[in-house]
Nucleic acid binder design. Structure first.
Lengths: 222, 222
DNA sequence: CGCCTGGCGATTGTCGACAATCGCCGAGTT
DNA sequence: AACTCGGCGATTGTCGACAATCGCCAGGCG
């Protein structure tokens, strides 16, 4: 961070760029389970050679977003409600409880400032009805904390879990979260984080994920 | 499965082959945290071009076994006891509880036969003191059950977790499991599986993993 | 002596071409 | 009509060459 508040512009390989584009298309619902992904087609559309596309598809495959069949192409993968509820959400809870407890002693005033900005962005997104922008800020909020825990494996696994959970909720349970409550839920979480009380934080992240990532949450909240 | 009991010989791409070789080298302890992995060196040693090596390294990176640095090469990653205990083992438990409960109605007599053979192989490996063979049979036992659950995401995540747990125990807690008890522990688990009683099975896999994958397990057993 | 800058070695990232695989479908046989 | 087999289209897997990046280190300057 320079004195001017400028950040280094991250270099991004074509592979990473392609992976981001595809992951976003899947989590946004533009690509649906069963949609075929053909290397040469994607390469042509994206103006690149097949190699970065191959590598991006491999990455997404390891992240459970895509399935590949030898010599037959790839397809977008869905995930069942059963696996979300019984596997992915509990793993997410395990990851975030650990990350939050380890991040507690590491969050700077600048971090808290950024987290507050993300909550503000959620509020703006909710006001204008942009679910993509809301989801993006939501993800960046959680990711910032996991990153600050400095637990390498925790972050790596979190990154392989979060997108498929998000894709599921976007596609299969679109009404699960009332956009108007998402910013408040994160504000509450941030307020608890500021207290620095570990037990309260763990309790809060537990509740937050249970409320926020349960397919029946919308009805339960009423 | 043909009438002769022959299995189709699985085709394996070079990428998969390279990934297996590297993963085994890491979990067996031949490659250690910090060891550098250079594409062209590995390609030359393995008699292949760089492309399959690249793809294999990417796969291992997504499985938390390797870290890559742009234009600087890759290195083998370790994992801390903290992350094993607080993250990886709890995730493993979540995965296996789910997989075992889903596999219960699906295990055939042939499956049980194969599981018994794997336990027998553990006994033979323990007798001759081959920890690699013991670990291999152990992994195949658990994997067979997760595969038979037919829960795609569960298996995919399991495959990204198991090797790094195994590598940790091989490298950093080599004395954690008494080889003589491993076969018996799996026999007990298999016997409970045969009863088909879900609650007992879940309890057994819980205990099995807690006993088998706790760094202090060796002392606790005495 | 300390700091800065630029060159370069080491390595990866990408490209385009050729090799290899897989399943589908049509033709031939019974 | 049902079954079998082989060809081929679609696509991936691999190769080798060239392009691009990164950090280190040596040389120059103040």
């Amino acid at each position: 961070m320079t004195a001017l508040g400028l950040r280094r512009v991250p270099s991004q390989s074509r592979r990473e760029h392609v992976a981001d584009i595809l992951r976003d298309a899947i989590t946004d619902g533009q690509l649906k389970p069963g949609d075929r992904l053909i290397e040469i087609d994607l390469a042509n559309q994206l103006g690149t050679s097949r190699a970065p596309v191959r590598e991006a598809l491999r990455q997404l495959e390891e992240q459970g977003l895509v399935a590949s069949y030898p010599y037959r192409g790839s397809e977008v993968l869905g995930v069942s409600q059963d696996e979300v509820e019984q596997v992915l959400v509990p793993i997410r809870i395990t990851l975030e409880r650990f990350a939050y407890s380890r991040a507690l002693g590491r969050l700077s005033e600048d971090d808290f400032h950024q987290l507050q900005e993300l909550v503000d962005e959620m509020e703006a997104a909710a006001r204008e009805g942009s679910t993509e922008r809301l989801a993006d800020a939501d993800v960046r909020f959680h990711e910032l904390i996991v990153v600050r825990s400095e637990q390498r494996h925790c972050l790596q696994i979190w990154k392989t879990i979060e997108p498929r959970v998000r894709a599921y909720f976007r596609r299969d349970a679109p009404a699960h979260a009332d956009a108007r409550t998402v910013p408040a839920q994160h504000q509450e979480l941030l307020d608890v984080l500021r207290t620095g009380a570990e037990a309260a934080v763990l309790d809060a992240i537990d509740r937050h994920i249970h409320i926020h990532l349960s397919p029946g949450a919308a009805s339960d909240e009423r």
